Simulated assay, not measured.
Amino acid sequence: MYVAVKGGEKAIANAHALLAKRGAGETRIGYGQVRDQLGVLVSRVMAEGSLYDPDLAAKALLQAQGDVLEAVTLLRSYRTTLPRFGTTAAIDTAGLPAQRRISATFKDLPGGQQLGATFDYTHRLLADELETPDIPAAATTQDDAPMPRITDLLGVDALIEPERPDDWTDPDPADLTREPTVFPMSRAERLQALTRGDEGFLLSLGYSTQRGFGRTHPFAGEVRVGEVEVFFDAPELGFEVPIGRIEVTECQMVNQFVGGTDATGAERPPQFTRGYGLVFGRAERKAMSMSLVDRALRHEEFAERAVSPAQDEEFVISHADNVQATGFVEHLKLPHYVDFQGELVLIRQLHRDFQERTAAAQAEEAANV
């Protein structure tokens, strides 16, 4: 037994050495290059790792050799070692100075459409070599014109549900990183889980709602990307202090609702309803997918029947976390020798019983002939 254990340790050490050699490559790149040139990937790792730090996310990607889920796991593991000094105030995205701001609902909207940096209008042709283009000064000029939210404009005539109901309260949501998940969840807790959720999984669920697997008819009311200031609530000072700025992507999805009796028995007029998404960094696809799933999970509020996977809270939340999903899937690579031997003995016995029954049936059939 002792020899086997030592042999296993040596094999694992060799595996680590081979991994490090493969990751070294011919040309060593720095985490700064990953941070600056793979910004969208870094944003995804920060969002799903629940830690806003572009440098650490870039280092995790390098260590993981580009494996996003491994990088997310590294970042979450590191996050658990950090001390907690308190909480920050809710960020104010209403006045978010947008580097990019688009709407699919109105062509001419106050503040205008800001296309910003996007792949939306590229030709999707693979370039032989990437070059740094010359950018006109006007393209980087920030327009200070006010940019009211589309949902605020619709709210003037009560054409969209209120952002906060009359009886709305603001309890502190549970911290999913420190407390076990309990169903049913509040919307704030669901949004917290969706922000940490796997982008590909949420994209598929959001796509499913557009194909009819969910009672939604969405319009991208507004997508904004920009930097917002973060304030720390310092009890010893008695007021909030700014501690820095972070880049976020926000999506307000506008969905149809024909009206009727809601879950509380109140009569609601025909009006648009909301789906919401907010994530770290540049992550429009994630924010849009999140907002589609958020609206699908609100079916109980509008007394809608849950008939699709995207409307099943427990299904969505339990399977959105890619770290948990990776752990469950990849644990199958670990030794299961004892379990398999038990299954093997059972299958052999069942196989023998089957053969005996088959032989007996054939003998009886031959005797009858």
Score class of each variant (00 low, 15 high):
residue 283 A to F: 06
residue 334 L to Y: 10
residue 141 T to P: 00
residue 286 K to Q: 14
residue 104 A to Q: 07
residue 139 A to L: 15
residue 174 A to T: 11
residue 351 H to S: 13
residue 28 R to F: 08
residue 59 K to E: 14
residue 221 G to E: 01
residue 6 K to Q: 12
residue 86 G to Q: 13
residue 283 A to T: 06
residue 42 V to G: 09
residue 44 R to N: 06
residue 352 R to N: 05
residue 270 P to E: 14
residue 223 V to P: 00
residue 230 V to P: 10
residue 292 L to N: 09
residue 297 L to K: 05
residue 262 D to T: 01
residue 152 D to C: 06
residue 92 D to N: 15
residue 215 R to T: 14
residue 278 L to P: 00
residue 1 M to A: 11
residue 261 T to F: 05
residue 319 H to T: 04
residue 6 K to A: 07
residue 34 V to G: 02
residue 282 R to V: 14
residue 306 A to L: 03
residue 93 T to Y: 14
residue 47 A to C: 04
residue 304 E to C: 11
residue 57 A to E: 11
residue 159 L to D: 01
residue 193 A to Y: 01
residue 70 E to W: 02
residue 38 L to N: 10
residue 114 Q to P: 01
residue 331 H to A: 15
residue 315 F to H: 10
residue 130 L to F: 12
residue 146 P to F: 06
residue 202 L to V: 08
residue 60 A to T: 01
residue 110 P to C: 08
residue 292 L to E: 07
residue 260 G to Q: 06
residue 355 Q to D: 11
residue 199 E to W: 02
residue 153 L to W: 01
residue 268 R to P: 01
residue 343 E to S: 14
residue 40 V to S: 14
residue 221 G to D: 04
residue 325 A to K: 09
residue 302 F to E: 08
residue 304 E to Y: 12
residue 161 E to L: 02
residue 337 Y to H: 12
residue 275 G to Q: 07
residue 61 L to R: 08
